[in-house]
């Protein structure tokens, strides 16, 4: 009985109490004071014992980020095309800028009556947030296509749709991809705020770790978050290189 109560005291997350208790009791039967019991920042034990929780959180993080960025991309493309018309440019850019200004936590809260406490709430919030970056960059890319190129394509008999799909969009790709990379990295990082509704991927672990003073969990989840962001950025950079081979050829 006394051993188990001693053990409780040691697994309680207080750095100072743990070693003191073990010395007073002199018990060896209680589990060793590993890094979990000592509540250390870096803890291999945490990685091995909480593998499944971490995996689930990473999977949720990846799924929600991917879903929101892809949906945002699908919505942003027509909006950018619309914004090329002179009359639509002002309203489209104004609305997306206002959406961008609204804080993520507030965005999730504003959408609460529509979606309730669900993953769709977080995805919808991130979609609205990413729209600005994507629309702006796609539009900038399309506007940067030289008029001569457009005229040359028209001279070759290209119709408007073929011109858009085979000339303008490919030439707008580098700018669009730059926007996509920024949007993805931001989404990975903002998703953590979704913890307030329970769908924050790794943010859930950070939130739970904060309430229980679980240092290893907070640090591990934060580092994984940054790793995911950097990996996603590099992946998109690789994709960009693959689909725009001419930019490398031009540079030499």
């Amino acid at each position: 009985m006394s051993a188990s109560s001693g053990r409780d005291a040691r697994t309680g997350h207080h750095n100072e109490t743990a070693p003191g208790t073990s010395r007073c009791n002199g018990e060896v039967t209680a589990p060793p004071d590993d890094c979990l019991a000592r509540n250390e920042w870096i803890c291999g034990e945490y990685l091995s014992t909480r593998r499944e929780i971490l995996q689930d959180a990473v999977v949720q993080h990846l799924q929600l980020t991917a879903a929101s960025v892809l949906i945002a991309l699908v919505v942003a493309l027509p909006l950018a095309l619309l914004a090329r018309r002179r009359w639509a440019a002002g309203p489209v850019l104004a609305v997306t800028t206002v959406l961008y200004t609204i804080p993520s936590l507030a965005m999730f809260s504003l959408l609460l009556p529509v979606y309730g406490l669900s993953a769709s709430l977080v995805v919808a919030g991130l979609v609205l947030y990413s729209l600005t970056l994507l629309v702006r960059n796609i539009l900038a890319g399309l506007r940067a296509v030289p008029e001569e190129t457009r005229q040359a394509a028209r001279g070759l008999g290209y119709g408007p749709i073929r011109l858009l799909l085979t000339v303008e969009l490919p030439l707008a790709l580098p700018a669009a991809m730059a926007g996509l990379r920024i949007a993805t990295v931001s989404a990975v990082s903002l998703l953590t705020v979704g913890a307030i509704v329970g769908f924050g991927g790794l943010g859930n672990l950070i939130y739970a770790g904060m309430n229980t003073y679980f240092k290893a969990q907070v640090l591990t989840a934060s580092v994984l978050c940054v790793v995911i962001a950097v990996a996603a950025d590099l992946l998109l950079l690789g994709v960009q290189r693959l689909i725009t081979p001419w930019t490398r050829a031009a540079r030499g």
Binding site: S189, L190, T192, K215, V218, S222, C225
Partner: peptide, 15 residues
């Protein structure tokens, strides 16, 4: 700076 979630930094500092 964009890749590091502010929320994570905040919680890390809190601990």
């Amino acid at each position: 700076g964009r890749a590091v979630p502010t929320f994570a930094v905040l919680v890390l500092l809190l601990l």
